[in-house]
Design a protein around this nucleic acid. Structure first.
Length: 227
DNA sequence: GCGACAG
DNA sequence: ATCTTGTCGC
């Protein structure tokens, strides 16, 4: 899968414009009652983009609803332009949830991005929902390794700017890269991430969205959600 | 030109 | 992301 000539520069220009709309302040009451998470998978040799969205109660972290949506893949993976590839299917899945979330966790970066407009920012600015970016690895920025203990953090810096927090959600495991998506502060994004991850490295909602996106159309057993 | 590079 | 088996560690 290839990207049309010249498209990349257009998308980069669009990111620069939209980045001006990102809001770094909290716009929802703590604690949130419902937390959603989204993710995408690429079955069929990458020909299909499957977006997944899950809705969890907070702080109980019980699954309330989930939805998936498939669309033909339109773009290849290009570092820095991930949101244009995954968001169409993700937004579609999100619209199928029967209740709206107070905040959404995204698998990927928020402002911890070259142009400060990662997928979490893009989804937030597009929908108006508060969003937080939770990446499993670094896209840009420098950081020192946080302490080995669960809850340890360090600052993610880029061009002398604090763009995120490196968070150890489990003792001894690789840390997560948390950043502001939209309508949320970095401190709240970090707190939400840690409180959603009482047992595993990844926050429960994201683990759930990951599994949902990764499974084929077959029937799924185990703990069903309400539907 | 060289190195880096979310998912 | 996706392709893939066994294997190390608690």
């Amino acid at each position: 899968m290839k990207a049309p000539a010249g498209l990349a520069s257009e998308l980069i220009a669009r990111q620069r414009e939209l980045a001006a709309h990102v809001d770094h302040d909290d716009h929802f009451a703590w604690p949130p009652a419902r937390v959603a998470a989204v993710d995408a998978a690429f079955p069929g040799n990458g020909k299909i983009t499957r977006g997944a969205a899950v809705l969890f109660s907070f702080p109980e972290l019980e699954c309330l609803d989930r939805a998936v949506s498939e669309l033909p893949t339109a773009l290849p993976y290009i570092p820095g332009l991930l949101s244009f590839r995954e968001l169409p299917a993700i937004r579609s899945a999100l619209e199928q949830l029967r209740e709206t979330p107070d905040v959404i966790l995204c698998d990927g970066q928020g402002i911890a991005h070259p142009r400060r407009f990662g997928i979490a920012c893009h989804l937030g600015v597009d929908t108006g929902f508060p969003t937080a970016g939770v990446g499993k690895s670094r896209l840009c920025g420098q950081f020192s390794e946080p302490g080995k203990e669960k809850g340890s953090t360090s600052i993610l810096l880029d061009r002398a700017e604090e763009i995120g927090t490196v968070v150890r959600t489990r003792t001894g495991v690789k840390p997560l890269f948390v950043s502001v998506g939209h309508r949320i502060s970095l401190a709240t994004a970090v707190r939400l991430t840690l409180e959603c991850a009482p047992r595993y490295r990844l926050p429960e909602p994201i683990r759930s969205a990951d599994r949902l996106a990764g499974m084929t159309g077959g029937v799924q057993l185990s703990a069903r959600c309400s539907r």
